[in-house]
Amino acid sequence: MASIILITLKGIFRDRVFQGIMVTALAFLLIPVIASLSMRQVTELSLTLSLSMISFILLLLSVFLGGTSLWKDIERRYTSSVLGLPLSRQRYLLGRFGGTALFVMIAAVVLGAAAFAVVLYSSAIYPPERPVIWSTMGLCILFDALKYILLIAVAFFFSTVSTSFFLPVFGTISIFLAGGVTQQVYEYLRSPASKSLSPVVKQIAAGLYYLLPNFGAFDFKVNAIYGLPLHVEGLLLTLAYFVVYVGILLSISAAIFIRREMR
């Protein structure tokens, strides 16, 4: 499986995805200039823009790499030759997933380093009212990466059930958007404002809340930007949620992939 991970990683680098990220990351150079337009929170704005940019790049990576990895292999008939080797389909799937996830992690580390440099520069020129808590910033980026690895698992799940490129890509984007608001919807349902809703709608919404991945839980941007304290218990629970949810998705994906007929 390690070799599949390595091959996947090499493949992504060969496709010049990393160079693409580096070119996009040049936009980091503009962040201090844009942030200096802020009246009272230059460093905070630098952090906001840096973290949003990392999040956006990781989103593109996870949707496109996650959504096209299996599809490309099947389309190129690469799978049939690889699966002829003494390698189980599960291991192949997990290897592909592991390689893509590892690449997203590497990208997060590199982009995170750029963000650290940008924020360090901004905070040196415009010292913030509250000092930047670097560990919170690091954790925020780490959990962002985990969120997108979870999204890759969603993309892989769609790839195993679909024969085209569209379902994995657009399905993943839809799940990403829906997963970002489930918490809000759930809180609304529990508030008195939702009294007028019919019980059926409420139950469907509550069902979706438990079914869809809760991406809101991985968002610690506000803590990183304004130096708000993080709660260890919350972080551990989110981490456990990540492990379990990815486990479920990969298990179902593997079960489908084993039964799938290859051309």
């Binding site: 802020s38 906001t48 990403f176 809000q184 941007k221 506000v222 930007i225």
Partner: peptide, 24 residues
């Protein structure tokens, strides 16, 4: 704002900052 919150996904802080910038 509810609609904006949904569309902004995990970029709420950035959308807020861009609204402020627009006014400024």
């Amino acid at each position: 704002v509810t609609a904006l919150k949904s569309v902004a996904a995990d970029h709420k802080e950035m959308v807020a900052a861009s609204l402020v910038m627009k006014v400024l």
